[in-house]
Nucleic acid binder design. Structure first.
Lengths: 361, 361
DNA sequence: GGCCGCGTTTAAATTGTTTAGATCACGATC
DNA sequence: GATCGTGATCTAAACAATTTAAACGCGGCC
């Protein structure tokens, strides 16, 4: 009795499959039978193989179109080991920094008819692993990833070992033997910091982000290098770490304004933090760009329309996405892609959020 | 000679598949052979079927884990007609309005082990069709879509006919026989408009968005109804249509400020437009929330930290995503889901971007 | 001796790709 | 005129990894 029940419940989820099987009945053999040729010929014809005569091919393609044949990629990939799927994992799809990267990846992959599956890992290693596992199960052709904090090189090695070639964007993983595409972060924050220094600022804080990632360390290093090169003091309390969001920047304003020997400028982790910080500063009754100078990073579209317009560092997102996708495609097609670290040179875009320092009593 | 060349180029893309086939060699039969059981037993054991004895199952699972077996979903789905993939199409992934919807869809689908593929259609019908076609080829189990402008009901009918059940979010398609989940837009803009009216505003513009979608018509209608109910004039020139982005809101500021009998308040299509508009107003030297009242729509996280904090209409995004995903899952499992239109009741969140009107000479 | 239940196995099925070989027409060669 | 070679088309059959319906072996039971 009990076992009878378990049996039923176990097979209960069939209905959808049945429904689908019922609907999806047009296959290669349907076409083959209708035209009196073999399925092999149909398969070859639909893929424009030179092995089949021009007019046979035309007849087949026309008939396939007419009866609404739908190509079954699963069946095909079972044989070919290529699924036409590429995985993309980033911290958070919604972070506008990734917007442009994703767009350029999308357009690059479109060209070679690869579909992509997107996922966030929210910097949780477990989520990232689950996703990679899913990609392996689906037989994905490759993965482009911005690795989660703490990703061990073994994870990437394992993926490659199981036929899932990887390329990294935005962050690097020490010891992983794959191509990495990202901006030159140290150089970039150096640009921003030097800009502030040249305006006359001497007390400059660095707001937002963490030092747990390669990006984090590089950005902080660029700031430190610039400060030291100018003979300026770097105080630990001037490093206000935190999430990379507007909300975090907004909340950091309180901490920033309460600092002893209050800095006159903030070099922010990214545009989101910078905009949040400016909002927080404005809320406190000060005027960002006049009372406090603020720089961002990434040059999001939003930076130009913020109030005041944000001085920021353009990070080459388009390039990162395009090159990463292109390198992955090369890998898929069996070309040897050497695991280099491509650093894209950032550029400073000066706007109204930075100015000469105003000293108050 | 020429034909020889074409031949070569045609078969040239095999290398990756070969590489993968080489790496991926552990399959059901590998385990079966090692333990001296049949592949059927292994298949059943791994899926915790009651048809296989407890200790056999444990041995099989342990061995599978030890040698790093990877489940091949393509092979399985060929047989079962279920792929574990759900498609999600929206206008633009990067629009933060969809952020919360996507997050709740993600967490709902996670629970039943469905992977989802995301895509933008940027309101281009052709892109949407290509994506649906890809889903059909991959044997996706279903699709959640915010339909592109101009989507004919036949497109949705065709998908369902081919075994791809659909549910709609955010927008409806007249004549499509599927469930739709969205906010009550007319009611929502009514809330915002009435709030402005109750503060004493008489000249209120509506900024952003288009009237080509069901959402657009509903939102405009809610605004018009509220105005008329209060006996206020609705001028065509006060309807400043446009894209639904910050950039568009920013640019609309010029047009808004140049209006004859300049309105004292703007009821904006969404938070992005509202924030852009406020930035534009601030850039022109006026103070949003004092000189001009502005309302948004969606209640993005950002609304609360904008300067000034934005009065806006909460749209129940979480609910939309959760219910849509849940309805789709029901459909997949063969339950009859009636094609109802679920309207989620919006709520007004009053902040500092609205106040009593200031009349200037 | 037939039937039952249990655990397992066998064989068929899912759909498209690939490869070795079949077929045919046509000219050239002996 | 028969044989052979050749190139162009096409086909039969093997193959990919899994699921599942049906069958099987084996005690125990009536």
């Amino acid at each position: 009795m009990a076992s009878g029940f378990r049996w039923r419940s176990w097979i209960s989820s069939r209905s959808s499959g049945e429904r689908k099987a019922l609907a999806q009945k047009i296959k290669l053999s349907t076409i083959a039978d209708a035209l009196g040729v073999s399925t092999a010929t149909v398969s070859l014809a639909l893929r424009d193989s030179p092995l089949v005569a021009g007019n046979t091919r035309d007849r087949i393609k026309e008939h396939a179109r007419a009866i609404g044949y739908i190509y079954n990629r699963r069946a095909a990939s079972l044989r070919t080991s290529r699924s036409g799927i590429v995985g993309v994992v980033v911290h958070d799809i919604m972070n506008p920094f990734f917007a442009e990267i994703l767009r350029s990846i999308e357009s690059e992959l479109d060209r070679s008819r690869q579909t992509f599956i997107l996922s966030n890992h929210y910097d949780q290693l477990e989520k990232q692993r689950t996703f990679i596992d899913t990609l392996l199960q689906l037989g994905a052709d490759g993965v482009i990833m911005s690795p989660a904090i703490g990703t061990p090189p073994e994870d990437i090695f394992m993926a490659e070992e199981n036929g899932l070639p990887a390329v990294l964007i935005a962050r690097t993983v020490e010891g992983a033997d794959v191509p990495v595409f990202r901006g030159d972060d140290a150089y970039g924050t150096g640009l921003a910091t030097n800009h502030l220094i040249s305006l006359g600022h001497k007390r400059i804080a660095m707001v937002g982000g963490t030092d747990q990632t390669s990006t984090g360390r590089d950005r902080y290093q660029g700031y430190v290098n610039a400060m030291e090169a100018a003979g300026l003091e770097v105080r630990p309390s001037w490093r206000i770490a935190g999430p990379r969001t507007k909300q975090a920047g907004f909340e950091a304003a309180g901490q920033f304004l309460a600092l002893k020997d209050k800095p006159t400028a903030a070099c922010c982790w990214n545009d989101l933090v910078a905009i949040g910080l400016m909002n927080g500063i404005a809320r406190a009754g000060l005027v960002p760009g006049i009372d406090i100078s603020v720089t961002g990073y990434d040059d999001l579209e939003e930076a130009a329309i913020a109030t005041p317009a944000l001085t920021t560092v353009w990070n080459g997102q388009r390039e990162v996405g395009r090159r990463a996708a292109s390198a992955l495609l090369d890998k898929l097609n069996g070309q040897m892609v050497r695991p280099s670290q491509e650093l894209i040179k950032p550029e400073l875009h000066v706007r109204q959020s930075t100015g000469k320092p105003v000293e108050r009593a």
